[in-house]
Nucleic acid binder design. Structure first.
Lengths: 239, 239
DNA sequence: TCAAAAGTGTTTAGCGTACACCCATGC
DNA sequence: GCATGGGTGTACGCTAAACACTTTTGA
C-alpha cells in the first residue's frame, strides 16, 4: 500500500501563526504588551504581537523571531501556552495560532513597534477593550494559567526588578489573584523558604520607614528543587 | 494600506494533525492506546491514533472525529495538551500536530482498528519501543502532565471502574508516580476529603478479606470546588 | 509630631507523618 | 489453620491562620 502523495495535497492549504502574551508588572499593576496593527485584517486594532510562521520554521523559534521583529525584544523566555484553532478565526483562510507567554521585567526592555505594528504599549490587564481576532480569549487563557502557575512555581520574580521589597512581591500576588493577603503570614511563608537574599540595601525616597531589598536566589531554588522541595504560595485569603 | 492577499499565499501551504494520547489503567498498570499504521509514512509502526485535520474543521472536533473513525470510541473527553511543530517531523511537508489526551475506563470501550489503523491495542506505558513520528516524545509530555495533574485534580477516578477499592486507587497513584505510598495515610487523606461514597458492596472471589467498593461523588466535588476546596494528593513517599 | 508603611511574636488548631496490630476471607 | 491483603488509632511535630503593636523615615 503505497501512499498517493496527491491525495494529501488537499490538507496542505493551511497556515499557522504564533501569538505572544507578554506579561509585565509596573506601578503595582499587572500589564500586557500589545501592538496596534497596520495591516488587514483588523488594521488599527490592538493585538498580541504575533505573525505567520514560515514554512519550515520551528514553532518556538518563530515565536522568538516574531517577537523580536515586532518589538525589538530579545532573550525573552517564551513558553507554549495553548493552540487556538476555531475554523473562521482569520479572514484569509484557515489559520491556527500557537500562543506563547512570558513574564518580563518591564524596565529591561524598551519595545519599539516594527513590521505589522504601528504602535506598541503596555496595557492594564483589566482595561483591554476590544482586541483583534480571538486575542482577548488568548489573554484570558494566559491569565488563568498565570494565576495557577505563580502559586507553585517561583515565576513571580521574573516580573519584578532584580531587587525588590517584600511588599512589592505581595502586591504582585494580590494583583494577579485579585485578592488580599495577610502581611505577616505572607512574609513568614516567603522568608521561610530560604529563597530570598537580603541585598543589604533599602528603599530610597519614600515617606516612611524604608523597606529592605531582596533578590531571588535562583541557584538555591535549583538545589532545593532537586531535593524534592515544592514551592507554594497559598491564597490564604485575608479574613 | 490594503493587504495583498497573494503575498500571504506562501503561508497557506501547511497541514496540521491531531494526535490522541488515551490513557487507561488495567491489571494495576498504566497503559496507552496505540494503533498500527497501514499508511506511509511509518507504515507498520505503532503510533498514536491521529490524522489530518480538515480544512475548516475545529481542532477539538477533529480530535474527537479522528479518534472515533480510527478506534470507534465515542464520548471520550479530550483535553488539549501541547502542539508539536518541529520543522521536518513529517515527510510530506510541513505538518504540525496538536496533541490531545484523555483518561478512560478500559472496560467501557472495545476499540477496533479502522481507517489508517490496521491494528489497535493497549500498551504498557513503560514498554512502548519505537513509535511513528515524534509520538514517543508526545507520550512523554502527556505522562509528565498526567503526573502533575493527578495530584491536584480528581482525575484518577476516570481511569478506574465506577466502583473501586481504595487499594486500587492507591495502586493507580503509585503506578503513575512510580513511587510507593503509605497505606494508612493515603486512605485517611482520601476519605477525609468526603469525595468517596461507600457503595455498600465488597470485592468477590479474593482469597483474603474482601475490600469495600467506593464510587467517586462528582456532584460533591463540584460543590466543594465552588467553596474553594483544593483537591490534593501528595506523594508522601514511603519511608 | 504626624502620617505612612515596615517590621515583628505568639497562640491555636488542623494536618501530615510515622508506625503495629487485628480482621475477614479462600484455600 | 494459614496465607493474604483489608482495615484501623494514636502520638508528635510542623505549619497555616489569626491577630496588634512598635519602629523608622520624610514631610
Amino acid at each position: 500500500m503505497l501512499p498517493d502523495k496527491r491525495y494529501f495535497d488537499s490538507f496542505f492549504k493551511s497556515a499557522f501563526t504564533v501569538d505572544n502574551v507578554i506579561f509585565g508588572f509596573d506601578e503595582g499593576k499587572l500589564k500586557i504588551l500589545l501592538i496596534r496593527r497596520n495591516e488587514e485584517p483588523y488594521a488599527d486594532y490592538w493585538a498580541l504581537p504575533g505573525y505567520f510562521v514560515q514554512q519550515y520554521e520551528d514553532l518556538d523559534a518563530a515565536a522568538e523571531r516574531v517577537l523580536r521583529e515586532m518589538t525589538g525584544m530579545e532573550n525573552v523566555y517564551l513558553e507554549q501556552l495553548h493552540t487556538f484553532g476555531t475554523p473562521y478565526r482569520h479572514a484569509f483562510g484557515r489559520v491556527i495560532t500557537v500562543a506563547y507567554y512570558s513574564l518580563v521585567k518591564i524596565a529591561d526592555f524598551r519595545p519599539r513597534a516594527a513590521g505589522v505594528a504601528q504602535d506598541i504599549t503596555w496595557h492594564l490587564i483589566d482595561e483591554l477593550g476590544v482586541l483583534a481576532f480571538d486575542h482577548l480569549e488568548i489573554v484570558q487563557v494566559a491569565l488563568e494559567h498565570l494565576k495557577k502557575s505563580i502559586r507553585t512555581r517561583p515565576i513571580g520574580f521574573e516580573l519584578l526588578p532584580p531587587a525588590f521589597t517584600l511588599t512589592e512581591l505581595q502586591h504582585l500576588y494580590e494583583s494577579v489573584w485579585g485578592t488580599e493577603l495577610e502581611k505577616r503570614n505572607f512574609r513568614k511563608k516567603i522568608l521561610s523558604m530560604d529563597l530570598l537574599r537580603d541585598v543589604g540595601k533599602v528603599q530610597k525616597g519614600v515617606a516612611h520607614r524604608p523597606a529592605k531589598l531582596y533578590r531571588f536566589d535562583e541557584q538555591r531554588y535549583r538545589e532545593l528543587e532537586k531535593e524534592g522541595f515544592n514551592f507554594e504560595v497559598r491564597d490564604g485569603g485575608k479574613k
